[in-house]
């Protein structure tokens, strides 16, 4: 039982991945974010079940084992975040899209050929439509404005981290 307790974050991650894939295949493949939340909560549920069995087994010393359970919750959350990032990479990363375009060509692609298939215009359209749909950006009188401030605050947080860790605001500095 103790090794199942130690491995519970990994088991929970496996359940997370399986549940997320099942959601996409059998419920809807258009609600990616919902599927990720669904998967994450299924994994968390499995983690709590394993931890509950573990804690019940050690009833006389429940409090002593709480820190160990907390560590597993933190480990699973970190693994779940990594999986979220992996899915997000396939969805939005430019590098992955470029690799995909290259893998679909037999003799390689020149810069011009790449730009015909994938370019800044497409990237902007994809992102703008997402930002407009979620009302993070509003379009009024032929001009764009900040709408709901969530993405704006997130962008500021990312900029703060960039300056704190990398010492610069942009990759072009």
């Amino acid at each position: 039982m103790v090794y199942l307790h130690v491995l519970s974050p990994v088991v929970a991650l496996a359940i997370n991945v399986l549940a997320q894939i099942c959601y996409c295949r059998f419920v809807s493949n258009k609600q990616l974010l919902k599927s990720l939340f669904f998967g994450f909560f299924c994994g968390m549920f499995m983690l709590f079940v394993i931890e509950a069995f573990y804690v019940v087994q050690l009833l006389p010393s429940v409090l002593k084992n709480i820190p160990s359970v907390l560590i597993n919750i933190a480990s699973y959350s970190a693994l779940g975040y990594c999986y979220f990032h992996f899915v997000n990479l396939g969805e939005t990363a430019r590098r992955i899209r470029l690799l995909r375009e290259l893998s679909e060509s037999k003799n390689g692609l020149s810069v011009d050929e790449i730009l015909q298939r994938y370019n800044a215009k497409e990237i902007m359209e994809n992102r703008l439509s997402r930002l407009l749909k979620s009302e993070q950006v509003v379009y009024k009188d032929n001009r764009y404005y900040i709408g709901k401030p969530v993405m704006f605050f997130m962008s500021k947080a990312v900029l703060f981290l960039k300056v704190f860790i990398l010492g610069k605001k942009s990759e072009f500095e």
Binding site: R127, L131, V137, Y145, I146, S155, V158, L159, I165
Partner: peptide, 14 residues
Amino acid sequence: LEADSPSLVMIMTI
């Protein structure tokens, strides 16, 4: 963090 995210650049430009 290493690369500038297009959404982030767009939001900050606006």
